[in-house]
Amino acid sequence: MLCDNCKKREAEVSVNLEQVYDKEKSELHLCYRCSLDFDKNFFINSLLNDLLFNFTNFHPFDKEKEKEVNDISCEGCSLTLYEFKKIGKLGCGKCYESFKKDINNIIEKIQWSEKHKGKIPKTNAASLIIKKEIETLKEELKNHIDLEQYEEAAKIRDKIKEIERGV
């Protein structure tokens, strides 16, 4: 069997995508050389096209669909989805919002999860901590209301208002 990536060398390694990403049931057969690149390079350069084509139900020979894909562009940098598909790189931070659906599908395939865990930039830290605190308080508020503990609920509501005023 030939390698799924280079289609030149004999496949020697089988990678079970279900085991790797806990998602789709599929297996890749790679040669030893390509298996060493079984990461960003492999996914972005080789699978990205397939992924994007699949996500947008776009067939390579369907010119109408190709135009439709081309028409989606980022409001921040004007990069089109078609360009992204070709180069595998985004043009600015806003691209993540502009091509949200497609990027989320890629992220699902190539990352551990869809939610960041870890360091937060210093400039964002303060506002994020406050946001998290308000979210926690709102959950507490809902719990107290559900349990008909209105006195405690009122206290938490006031606390939320106080924090929001400070922000």
Binding site: K40, L90, G93, Y96, I103, I110, K119, N124, K131
Partner: peptide, 13 residues
């Protein structure tokens, strides 16, 4: 930086 996606990079990988 995005609260959900973390540090934003050129490549989603």
């Amino acid at each position: 930086f995005d609260e959900k996606l973390g540090y934003l990079t050129s490549c989603p990988s």
